[in-house]
């Protein structure tokens, strides 16, 4: 199996209010097309680990490799274009830009990448919105949508650059059970039909149970789920 993400002995400390080890020798390998849930009690370090994996946090020891590229030691200015191309994000809150339309929101990462023409970008954005079932909302302001629709638009935005991995931080944390189910089904479909890799930090037990692989953390260590 192709490994899309590999970490080697990732260790991280918090220095405020006092020195504290949040991550202890995390070594993890994620296969392409895997739907992985990262679970554990509050404060176990799962979110911290996700931000290290997503390259936004560079203050750690150990090694990180995504899509065959070693990312440890790179500066934020190099990592930003890498994220743009290889990582999509879905958070607990949608974080759509409120002044822009749904379509514009989805297009922004692709425009930033600037690899294809504007017309093609727009076409691709419509395609993604269609997968998420919100293409009718395309020309509305993002702030005018319901919470479930907004989260789906956020997922469409995460998909626009065909990333290697989608990183999620509590993707269903702010949704009702119906919309949670919708989001889960979308993730499931993405991983199984589009070979999309997803790493989701979650508190939602049902969500975690149904995913392909559950990695459980406690006190900064992986205690379960290293193997499938």
């Amino acid at each position: 199996m192709e490994k899309v993400l590999i970490t080697n002995n990732v260790t991280k400390y918090f220095y405020e209010p006092e020195k504290f080890q949040v991550l202890k020798d995390i070594s993890l390998a994620v296969n392409r097309g895997e739907f992985l849930s990262l679970v554990g009690k509050s404060g176990c370090g799962k979110s911290t680990l996700m931000y290290v994996l997503s390259t936004m946090d560079t203050d750690y020891e150990g090694e990180l490799e995504i899509a065959g590229v070693r990312l440890t030691g790179k500066a934020q200015n190099e990592l930003a274009p890498f994220r743009n191309m290889h990582i999509g994000f879905v958070f607990q809150f949608h974080y759509l830009l409120p002044e822009f339309t749904v379509l514009q929101n989805v297009m922004i990462p692709a425009l930033k990448r600037g690899q294809v023409s504007r017309a093609e970008t727009e076409e691709r954005a419509y395609e993604k919105l269609k997968i998420l079932g919100v293409e009718e909302q395309a020309l509305k302001r993002s702030s005018k949508l319901s919470g479930g629709q907004q989260q789906r638009v956020a997922i469409a935005r995460a998909l626009i650059n065909n990333p290697d991995i989608i990183m999620c931080d509590e993707p269903t944390g702010n949704l009702d059970s119906y919309n949670s189910q919708v989001v889960f089904d979308i993730f499931h479909q993405l991983t199984h039909t589009h070979k999309q890799t997803i790493i989701a930090v979650t508190h939602d037990e049902e969500f975690a149970r149904k995913s392909d692989r559950v990695v459980e953390m406690s006190d900064g260590k992986i205690i379960n789920g290293l193997h499938k």
Binding site: N77, A80, P81, F82, F91, Y95, L97, P98, I108, K112
Partner: peptide, 16 residues
């Protein structure tokens, strides 16, 4: 702030 944070997550560098 939130818009800036998400733009950065999506690959906007500090300079952008």
């Amino acid at each position: 702030m939130k818009d800036i944070a998400i733009l950065k997550a999506m690959g906007f560098a500090g300079g952008d």
